[in-house]
Amino acid sequence: MDAATPGIGFGHFLAQADGVAKFILVLMAVASAASWYLIVTKLVSYARAKRRSSAFLDFFWNAPSLDVVAAQIEQKHPDEPFSHLVYHAIVASRHHERHGINRLNEAGSSSDFVTRTLRKTIDEETASLESGLTVLASVGSTAPFVGLLGTVWGIYHALVAIGVSGAGTLDKVAGPVGEALIMTAIGLAVAIPAVLGYNLIVRANRLTLAQLDAFAHDLFAFLGTGAKIDSAGGNVTPLKVSGAR
């Protein structure tokens, strides 16, 4: 590049960008920041919940009775999905035994009431795990097109400026058009992490919910019969469960 050639690059593009182009850049920056925030916080939260769930499940399977588990949960508020599920299931079972049917949502047998409680709790955990995923999906699907819009807008203004100046040689056209293509690259740079993060979080959520659903089956068996059902061999292992019917 000689001294007579104007400098090109992202800085020059920003200097030449109008209000629309700058608005698109700000929008992309906000979308990128939101995506990375959700990705990092979700993955950190998943790692913490996985560690806490592993510790709770180890305690649960080694507890002598559900009364011991209930006492532990009452002392320490549930801070992960599995202890949260156990807490609501035990509360529902005790409430139905003590108070019977007082309202429509308590209708049916104790097993029916506990089943509805387990289902409701799993639905709440699903909603909690999936919060923020809509933002990631939206950013991943729209960022490339927003970047393309910025590119088209930039190329349009670059061509208008070239037409006004009357300098239509390749060296005069390549710089402004190349600068406008930066917007497409920015759109891809925003979209790709959002898509990868979305897929990673969805997979982690799917594994967590599958484990939670399987645990809910065992928990229901504990509350109803005081035994854990061995799904592999079809055997039933008795456990000491206070008040089991």
Score class of each variant (00 low, 15 high):
179 E>F: 00
205 N>S: 11
129 L>V: 01
112 D>H: 00
177 V>A: 12
85 L>A: 05
159 L>M: 15
195 V>H: 03
133 L>K: 05
81 P>N: 13
206 R>W: 03
104 L>A: 15
115 T>P: 01
90 I>C: 05
115 T>Q: 13
110 S>C: 10
129 L>M: 13
174 A>Q: 10
97 E>N: 04
182 I>M: 14
128 S>E: 09
203 R>D: 14
91 V>P: 00
155 I>F: 05
133 L>N: 11
134 T>V: 08
187 G>M: 04
148 L>Q: 07
114 V>R: 03
105 N>P: 03
141 S>A: 15
176 P>L: 03
180 A>P: 09
148 L>W: 02
182 I>F: 14
196 L>A: 14
94 R>Q: 14
154 G>R: 04
163 G>P: 02
91 V>Q: 13
180 A>S: 15
135 V>A: 14
147 G>M: 09
87 Y>I: 02
173 V>W: 04
100 G>C: 05
112 D>W: 00
175 G>L: 09
160 V>I: 15
204 A>G: 11
201 I>G: 08
204 A>M: 11
183 M>C: 10
125 E>S: 01
104 L>Q: 12
144 P>S: 12
197 G>A: 06
208 T>C: 13
137 A>H: 08
155 I>H: 09
201 I>Q: 04
99 H>I: 00
96 H>M: 09
153 W>M: 06
102 N>R: 13
166 G>P: 00
88 H>R: 07
121 T>Y: 04
156 Y>F: 13
135 V>S: 10
116 R>M: 12
150 G>C: 02
135 V>W: 13
138 S>V: 12
